[in-house]
Design a protein around this nucleic acid. Structure first.
Lengths: 150, 150
DNA sequence: TATTGTTATACTCTATAACTATA
DNA sequence: TATAGTTATAGAGTATAACAATA
């Protein structure tokens, strides 16, 4: 009758984990043919939206620590999707620029992800989806406040 | 104006990731004083709810691969929270039993997690919370179907 | 002094193949 | 032959300290 994790199922954090891991695994399957993962896709989208932004800004936007950004950017650069240029006015910084190939792949990847999103949310009404997105944004803010107050 | 990840913010998968990582980090802060993490807490709750269940059943309940269950169970056993007993009738299997200390800690941890859940969902109405939980469960099912059909 | 990017390092979670001892 | 638990291993993501070059 009741599954072994019945108690856990009552916890929102546990439900979020199970749902996210499933969605992420599914999303990575969608992105794999394009040579991308969730992390590299996210970075490519931000660089394409904000050409010229610096590595520290990208790390901040994605909530990734700077040291972990290095390999990620190097991977995208090696794949020919973005370029690192010395920022004018600050020779320490790298300005990140999407290549033509990066922009093209980004457009294809966004289309694939949008189709994937439509599939995984197909069982939700417009109102339910809106409530879900608002709830997730609110919980993200609340959790970060809790952590900050620690 | 628009943040660098504005495009990503429109994706449900990205919103789920950010919310989950925030909630998980916050939850781990709550559990740390009890010597637990989200994974060890989850395992302890299941063993306490279903004393005598086997390692493979625990792994299945938590969607963890069996090899990854070994260290987790060993950690709980070393902490004196559960015991491994040879299952009667199948000398290959381990029956997992909570100790008195395990049951006591589990009760305290559940209370702490419930208080934590109340905090992070405090901005949501009862109906919004219900919609959120249903949406997460539905997306988990949908994602697993997608993956299975691959 | 402070910041950008970097190296080195470590921990957690996850995933697969292969072994052992039982069945 | 199949299963329960194990070992070994590897890939991601995440986290902190410390360094060189530059500001």
């Amino acid at each position: 009758m009741t599954p072994p994790d019945a108690t856990l199922r009552g916890f929102c954090g546990y439900a979020m984990k199970r749902a996210f891991l499933g969605v992420q695994a599914d999303l990575n399957r969608v992105l794999a043919p394009l040579g991308l993962r969730m992390m590299t896709f996210s970075a490519l989208v931000v660089v394409t939206d904000c050409p010229g932004l610096r590595q520290a800004q990208l790390a901040d936007a994605l909530s990734v620590e700077k040291p972990n950004m290095v390999a990620l950017v190097a991977e995208l650069e090696k794949a020919g999707l973005i370029e690192r240029q010395r920022a004018a006015g600050d020779r320490r910084a790298h300005a990140l620029i999407p290549t033509d190939a990066g922009r093209a792949l980004c457009a294809r990847a966004i289309a694939a992800v949008q189709a994937h999103e439509a599939r995984i949310t197909s069982g939700l009404s417009k109102l339910e989806l809106q409530t879900l997105m608002q709830a997730l944004a609110l919980m993200e803010r609340t959790a970060s406040e809790e952590t900050t107050h620690a």
